[in-house]
């Protein structure tokens, strides 16, 4: 057991965790943040993606104890409040980029990390970033279009 200090969605927290607990299990089971999905638990599907230091990471391959001292952004931290959506969430809604919703948390966070680094990515760049997240409903086209829509909205907002 180890003591870890994390900042999760802007809130500081101190916990005692087992050595083998992954960040994904920690967020879901210890913090109740079940928006982080667990799919394959071997780094392939991307459903457990969270953002650490502006980078999308696989929470299933990241030990909670390794994340000690880091700021973590999860899907629960994306919307500004309980009634409004963030721009990327709104683009997914407008573009019908959600089917069963299981991959959506990871898709949104990967897309957010991309748009934060590159507000106006071209389609190739979007595909290059998003191909690490699997959608078993195969709704890829709408997902790519939703990220493009969010990028276009960025472009009109920042002339």
């Amino acid at each position: 057991m180890k003591v870890i200090n994390l900042v999760i969605n802007g809130k500081s927290t101190t916990s005692i965790v087992g050595d083998r607990m992954t960040l994904a299990d920690y967020l879901r089971d210890e913090q109740g943040l079940t928006g982080t999905r667990l799919g394959c638990e071997q780094g392939v599907c991307g459903a457990c993606t969270v953002i650490v230091r502006k980078r999308p990471v696989r929470a299933c391959l990241y030990l909670a104890v390794q994340a000690d001292g880091q700021e973590i952004e999860t899907i629960e931290g994306l919307a500004p409040n309980a009634t409004e959506l963030s721009p990327i969430q709104d683009a997914f809604r407008q573009g019908h980029a959600v089917q069963c919703g299981f991959c959506t948390s990871g898709m949104l966070l990967t897309a957010k990390a991309l748009l934060d680094e590159n507000p106006n990515p071209d389609e190739d760049t979007i595909r290059d970033w998003m191909h690490g997240n699997i959608c078993r409903c195969v709704g890829y086209q709408q997902i790519i279009e939703a990220v493009q829509l969010a990028a276009e909205q960025n472009a009109t907002e920042t002339p």
Partner: peptide, 12 residues
């Protein structure tokens, strides 16, 4: 490097 897995893997 740009051909290795995905952004979410290369991050770590």
């Amino acid at each position: 490097l740009s051909t290795v897995a995905a952004a979410g893997i290369r991050s770590r």
